[in-house]
């Protein structure tokens, strides 16, 4: 249509306001379970048993969630008895403590021009589908200075999804080696973080960290686009990270 300019102007900016303002549009995140204090002593055991990926651990007086393993199946949330608390946000990316991180720091160096190479190391397709969204007009990674590059030779950030299947082991290693320093690795999704539902098995290593040093983990199965954006921002230290394990809140003295 000839009046697409006018139409565009009338429509105005529809892109997400994140990270300047939180995005509260419905459906931007499925939410995730949080560490919860439980009243009943048996409830924790029940929840641990219900979790299919061993993401829930008992903690004194409640449960803690290992976000790197959680796949948002909601079994803990829909539990008939005491359910796990549910957090609606999306700033999930967590930093890992890797000794080599200091050498690979990107912060400040390429502030507004970071090139991202995406490697699907045996992912089911969900993470790729979500990661593709950060390139669309709504999430629009370019406004934040992130760009997709096809060659690792010009990449600063390596985005990995999938549990690293045997076939993708060498390509992933080669991709990482081909990237010039300084560089950072962002593992996207539960599979890349811990192996997820595939876990370490005869066909998969169980996480990107098994063969390359991972700096940032974006939990979720799949993580929503805003969580991946948050992961990229954490990788370049433009946003504070979240914790990988959400512990149960400490009992406030007096109320209990």
């Amino acid at each position: 249509m000839a009046n697409w300019v006018l139409k565009g102007l009338r429509t105005g900016v529809k892109s997400s306001a994140y990270p300047n303002r939180p995005d509260d549009a419905p459906g931007v995140s499925p939410g995730r379970p949080m560490g919860t204090r439980l009243k009943s002593p048996t409830a924790a055991d029940e929840l641990v048993a219900r979790c299919p990926t061993q993401a829930i651990a008992r903690e004194n007086g409640g449960i803690a969630i290992d976000q790197g393993r959680c796949i948002h199946c909601s079994r803990c949330r829909r539990h008939v008895g005491e359910a796990a608390a549910w957090e609606p946000g999306y700033e999930w990316a967590a930093q890992t403590s890797d000794a080599a991180t200091a050498l690979r720091k990107l912060a400040g160096m390429f502030g507004r021009s970071l090139h991202v190479r995406f490697v699907d190391a045996g992912a089911c397709g969900a993470c790729m589908s979500e990661a593709r969204q950060i390139n669309n007009p709504y999430y629009n990674m370019h406004r934040l200075g992130f760009f997709i590059t096809p060659s690792p030779r010009s990449a600063d950030i390596l985005l990995v999804a999938g549990p690293v299947s045997d076939a993708m082991r060498l390509p992933l290693r080669k991709t990482y080696d081909a990237m010039p320093t300084p560089k950072r690795v962002v593992a996207v999704g539960a599979c890349a973080a811990s192996g997820g539902v595939f876990g370490p098995s005869f066909a998969a290593l169980g996480g990107a960290a098994e063969i390359i040093p991972v700096d940032v983990v974006v939990p979720g199965c799949p993580p929503p686009p805003l969580a991946i954006l948050h992961g990229l921002l954490v990788a370049v230290e433009r946003k504070p990270p979240s914790a990988l394990v959400s512990a149960a809140p400490r009992p406030t003295t007096g109320s209990a």
Partner: peptide, 12 residues
């Protein structure tokens, strides 16, 4: 000076 193999698309 890091020396790495030329990028070949991750071929085996």
């Amino acid at each position: 000076l890091a020396r790495a193999a030329a990028w070949d698309g991750g071929l085996r």
